[in-house]
């Protein structure tokens, strides 16, 4: 037992055990196919697949792996608009997320600063923010479509490079992902110790200097917490948005595969979304931790 702890095996072994339990549970619920080959009255071979199990259509782990293999082994292949390697899909989604997230930060940070600095601004806008904050991305998307209807950026070949649905997608991601940044920045600005502001006052630092030398560095740890939460939300929203507008990406792939009765690929998409979300969160945590210790 002592040996077990010395090697820190528990840190590896316990998650593996948990994973096996989950896989076992999945395999238990999942259906399994049975293929029977018979010869019909015309002398032709007929193969008939029947599925059994608690949830008949849920693919088993093994079936999921077999069906997902081409997407994983060649993660960057492009066979068609909606038939691409899984990491290529993820890359498409990430690109969209990055754009929407950038807009969210560019809008959210200044709003957060205004909220943190001005009591009257807070009194005026806080009710609106509190009401808009819990609105689901699914509700924002149609509004985005209406807002940007008719928008079309066409390249030299006449192909639309940026249309209504792209604008609506960015709008939805930005407006949903903005709130944690807004609120955390506001908290961070309010939490700037009066002592630091007194130093600025005594030295007669100008407004911009106070902002860049005192307020921003002091509020940065809070701001990064907001940025991390915002990124998490942006990644949640992208899947919903892609499903609704049918854009190629992890979410779009998921919805298309559901419509194509290719259920194994749904599970592949879910796992991909989870993995990438986890990696994004870890990355932001690392950056956040660096600022927190400062």
């Amino acid at each position: 037992m002592k040996f077990f702890y010395q090697l820190k095996l528990d840190a590896i072994l316990l998650p593996v055990i948990a994973l096996l339990i989950c896989l076992g549970g999945w395999a238990l619920i999942a259906g399994h196919g049975k293929t029977t080959v018979s010869v019909d009255d015309w002398g032709d071979k007929v193969t008939k697949t029947e599925r059994f199990g608690l949830s008949k259509n849920l693919p088993s782990p093994a079936e999921t792996w077999t069906a997902s293999k081409p997407y994983i082994v060649e993660p960057f292949a492009k066979r068609g608009e909606l038939d691409q390697g899984i990491l290529r899909f993820a890359w498409l989604s990430l690109k969209l997320v990055a754009q929407g997230y950038a807009i969210a930060l560019l809008l959210g940070t200044p709003i957060g600063f205004f909220l943190g600095l001005s009591k009257n601004f807070t009194r005026a806008f806080d009710p609106i923010i509190q009401i808009l904050r819990p609105v689901s991305p699914l509700a924002w998307l149609p509004l985005g479509m209406v807002l940007f209807s008719g928008l079309k950026v066409v390249d030299s070949t006449g192909r639309t490079t940026f249309g209504t649905s792209d604008a609506a997608a960015l709008f939805t991601i930005a407006i949903c992902a903005m709130w944690p940044t807004v609120l955390n920045t506001a908290v961070g600005v309010r939490a700037v110790p009066q002592d630091y502001l007194n130093v600025a006052k005594v030295l007669k630092l100008s407004k911009p200097k106070t902002l860049f030398k005192i307020l921003i560095p002091s509020a940065l740890p809070y701001m990064f917490t907001g940025f991390r939460l915002s990124l998490g939300i942006a990644w949640l929203v992208i899947v919903a948005v892609e499903m609704l507008i049918g854009k190629p990406g992890v979410g779009g792939f998921l919805w298309q595969q559901y419509n194509a009765n290719s259920y194994a690929h749904i599970i592949l998409s879910i796992l991909t979304i989870g993995f990438i979300g986890y990696i994004l969160d870890r990355m932001m945590s690392l950056i956040e931790g660096r600022f927190r210790s400062a």
Partner: peptide, 19 residues
């Protein structure tokens, strides 16, 4: 009329900028 650098203060809690 307001604070200024001609009257420098050493604060009780140092007020150094930690970053």
């Amino acid at each position: 009329t307001g604070p200024g650098p001609e009257r420098g203060i050493v604060f009780q809690n140092y007020s150094l900028l930690p970053w």
